Deep mutational scan, measured.
Amino acid sequence: SAVVMEEGSPGEVPVLVEPPGLEDVEAALGMDRRTDAYSRSSSVSSQEEKSLHAEELVGRGIPIERVVSSEGGRPSVDLSFQPSQPLSKSSSSPELQTLQDILGDPGDKADVGRLSPEVKARSQSGTLDGESAAWSASGEDSRGQPEGPLPSSSPRSPSGLRPRGYTISDSAPSRRGKRVERDALKSRATASNAEKVPGINPSFVFLQLYHSPFFGDESNKPILLPNESQSFERSVQLLDQIPSYDTHKIAVLYVGEGQSNSELAILSNEHGSYRYTEFLTGLGRLIELKDCQPDKVYLGGLDVCGEDGQFTYCWHDDIMQAVFHIATLMPTKDVDKHRCDKKRHLGNDFVSIVYNDSGEDFKLGTIKGQFNFVHVIVTPLDYECNLVSLQCRKDMEGLVDTSVAKIVSDRNLPFVARQMALHANMASQVHHSRSNPTDIYPSKWIARLRHIKRLRQRICEEAAYSNPSLPLVHPPSHSKAPAQTPAEPTPGYEVGQRKRLISSVEDFTEFV
């Protein structure tokens, strides 16, 4: 048969007729292969192709491409040299491709048809291009793949890379869960390890502090508590009631339409708007009261037996805890006409967050109470924005700035309102402590230090009264110190430094 060459192609190359033996071998191979691939376009007849790359030819070592076609129900084999250009295909004639002069020997084609199974398996396991790669995943090629499931790999992101949580363990979102698992493993320790309690022994800490320079003076030496005195035992138990972190309780009120001037209507609300609910979820963490331990979680007086509701929101960081007394989460009882059960919590909070959804101005004093010092007013606006402002009593104007209003988005509203309420509550605590000038409020841990110092002074006084020969370590507060001759004046800087060093040991009130 003659071949018409394309323009620009090399000279004529004689194409030899395939021997009958080659056709029989390739026909047997075509019957084993699956003929249901995917359909081509209507211009080209339905056909199945599979590209198999052999590394070497037997005796020649030339890479070839073998295409199996099922045109007219008769499979045909096409061998081509890759750099050459194939002729145009037609549905009426068999596929013809040019070969190099080196394939002119018909014996070479017979060798190609009689490829060993080793070469076929190696060509099938190679990388296939384009559409033949999808075909190689079918059941027909499963014989050339190794048996057994593939090893499982770690989760992959859409980009093909490992997620960040699997790369950096410290930033993994499941870090707290692993800590819980470690605690569970520790709890399952053997009885021999049960006595080993991690941490620092208080006796060891005391020993280090006792021999430090801070205890060089007799006034700073630790003293032993009497065991037989019940009054001192009660004082030590009272110390446990003062937490070592700051605590805040903040009221949250929802004002519906037409309720801006009605205290009873505001306290009777059992739910609010959708934006109000989203605002609550951002204030803190939802907790169930019956599962809380009052000595570990500050509840601000809420009952854990269901008297004040089942849930509330709280927030904490390293040095403070805040609980929100939310009116809509507290039960509304029919027998309580004046809502006294709610007001006994909300009316005693220094700061209230008022979500004013009424469309009218909310005035300070609508919720009557002796300790309502500051109101954080949240007014929802259009386009997911809110107006946040402050209202306070006249005696609080020096501590709280009420002249600045803020426009905040719904997303950042819980954070801004919480921070403003916490700052206002700190100012309210300082303002409330002014009624007792001898006990200015600095912080909870300073209050613990003052309680310890008062307890020490009482013990020293009782020891001096029981044994008059012992001198008083600290003179009583009601006694007057003996007159001392004025010492020589020293520079102001040295006096300030000495006073600062003494105050650092005794108390921190002056620095606050």
Rank of each mutant, 00 (worst) to 15 (best):
W445R: 07
E506Q: 06
I223S: 08
D401Q: 06
H432G: 05
A481Y: 09
G347V: 15
R434N: 11
N425V: 07
D295L: 05
Q259W: 01
E218K: 09
Y245F: 10
F508D: 15
L422A: 02
D382M: 05
V388D: 00
D308M: 08
A405V: 15
M330A: 06
T438V: 08
N348K: 15
P491N: 11
A487G: 10
Y383L: 06
L390H: 02
L399D: 06
I287V: 11
V376W: 01
R454E: 15
H431R: 11
S219T: 11
K343W: 10
F415I: 05
S229P: 09
T402R: 07
R434H: 10
Y355G: 00
R344E: 12
M330G: 04
T485S: 10
G309S: 14
V505F: 09
D361R: 05
D401P: 07
L238D: 15
D395I: 05
L413G: 01
N372Q: 15
D349H: 07
V430H: 15
A463G: 10
L346K: 04
L399P: 03
E218D: 12
H431M: 14
Y313H: 05
T509N: 14
N220Q: 14
D303K: 14
S469Y: 11
I502Y: 11
I266F: 03
Q310S: 09
I326W: 02
H432N: 06
D357E: 07
Y276L: 01
Y441E: 14
D246W: 06
F324E: 02
H271R: 05
E278V: 06
I353F: 01
V378K: 00
C305Y: 11
G398K: 08
Q419S: 05
E278D: 09
C460Q: 12
Y313E: 04
P486C: 07
L364Y: 15
E278Q: 10
R500I: 10
T332W: 07
D336I: 06
D336A: 10
C314G: 07
Y493A: 13
R234W: 08
I452A: 07
I377F: 01
R434S: 09
R434C: 11
L224D: 14
F371P: 13
C305W: 07
D336K: 10
D341M: 14
S403W: 03
L387C: 04
K343H: 09
Q484G: 12
P482I: 14
K394S: 14
S403G: 11
L455M: 15
K453T: 15
G256C: 02
Q429F: 07
S262R: 05
L253D: 00
D439Q: 08
K221S: 15
R418W: 04
P226Y: 07
V400T: 05
R456D: 15
Q321G: 05
G256Q: 03
N425I: 03
S268P: 03
V374G: 02
T281K: 10
M330E: 05
S389F: 07
D349W: 03
A483S: 09
L364I: 14
Q391R: 07
G256Y: 00
P243I: 05
S268L: 05
L253P: 00
L501N: 15
V297M: 13
V408P: 00
K444Y: 08
E288S: 12
R456P: 15
S477F: 07
E510D: 13
C460T: 14
K499L: 10
F362Q: 01
Q391Y: 04
Y441S: 14
Q310E: 11
S428E: 01
Y245C: 07
V404R: 06
D401E: 06
V378L: 06
L238Q: 15
F508V: 14
G306S: 10
F362L: 06
Q293N: 15
P482D: 11
E228R: 05
N412Q: 05
R418A: 13
S352I: 06
D361S: 08
A427N: 03
E488L: 08
I377C: 06
A327P: 06
Q419V: 10
E218M: 10
A487Y: 09
G284H: 05
L422D: 01
S231L: 13
E288L: 07
C340T: 13
L253W: 08
E384W: 04
I459H: 12
